[in-house]
Amino acid sequence: MNKPTDLSATTFTLNGQHAQCQPAPGQRLSEMLREQLGARDVKIGCNAGDCGACTVLVDGDPVCACLMPAQQAAGRAVETPAGLHANDPIAHALGESFQNHGAAQCGICTPGMMASAVALLRANPQPTETQVQDALGGVLCRCTGYRKIIDAVMGAPALTRDAPGHAGDAIRRLDGADKVAGREAFGDDIAPPGTLEILVIRSP
């Protein structure tokens, strides 16, 4: 006798591979990806759709994973920053450009920037600066002031360690590769499920 189908299971494609989860009612896609599937390259910033750090591609379109109910991923193709970096030549080249331009500083916004930029470059390999700004407009960066990120997406020339030597030439950050690949671990990325939390409330 065939086992009855579990109607609560959400089946979809994650970075080209079959994935299936049983998200709780109302669970966010970002939480399902991170906590049930181990995709810690999907960063959690505001959890309100304001910062864009959790941006992933759903059927090729950039989506704030914290705003999308996990059940809506059913039957769709979800790509995370780490999957893009591993599988997509555009993402890999973009990661190299990010490193050349010093565009990944603290790194918390970098996965969202990478996902949004890949979606743009797939549709338009030679975007204008205005198009890059529009594509990245939903992802907030508090470090670079966007100039380095925009230059990296547009592929503008950068001073790197391989360029002719001049005083003050930029060199790649030692931690840049992990940041563009989504491997950089922040505090929330290493906390195991069920970790106790404390909220300090002070008198006004």
Rank of each mutant, 00 (worst) to 15 (best):
I44G: 01
E129R: 00
A91L: 05
S203G: 13
G16K: 08
I150A: 12
M154L: 12
Q20G: 13
A19R: 12
L121R: 10
N15R: 08
V132E: 00
R202F: 02
C51A: 02
G107T: 02
L196C: 12
C64H: 13
T130H: 03
T11G: 10
K3N: 10
C109P: 04
G45S: 05
Q17I: 00
G137F: 06
E79A: 14
L94D: 01
H18A: 15
V153P: 09
L121C: 06
A163F: 07
H18M: 13
Q71C: 03
P125T: 09
D162S: 15
H85I: 09
P157A: 08
C106Y: 01
G112W: 04
D59P: 05
V132D: 00
G45E: 05
R76V: 00
R34V: 03
L199E: 11
D41R: 06
V58S: 06
C141P: 07
G16E: 08
A24W: 01
Y146A: 15
N47Y: 10
D169K: 15
A77K: 12
G194C: 09
T80H: 12
D188Q: 15
H85S: 10
L174H: 12
G165R: 12
L196A: 14
A163E: 12
R161K: 12
H101M: 04
P62G: 04
T13N: 05
K43P: 06
A115S: 14
A135C: 09
Q27D: 00
T80I: 07
V42W: 08
F98G: 06
T80V: 11
D188R: 11
P127F: 03
A156H: 14
F12H: 04
Q71D: 02
N100I: 00
A185D: 08
V56N: 11
L37G: 04
G49A: 05
G38F: 07
G60M: 07
L33N: 11
A19H: 09
R173Q: 15
L37T: 05
P62Q: 10
T144E: 13
T13Q: 10
V132R: 04
G49V: 01
A19K: 11
A91E: 03
R183T: 08
G60A: 07
E197A: 13
G112L: 02
V200P: 00
T13Y: 02
A123G: 11
G168I: 15
A167S: 10
M1V: 11
L14Q: 14
A53C: 14
Q105P: 00
G83P: 06
A177M: 09
A73Y: 03
R34L: 04
S116D: 04
I198M: 07
M113L: 12
Q20L: 09
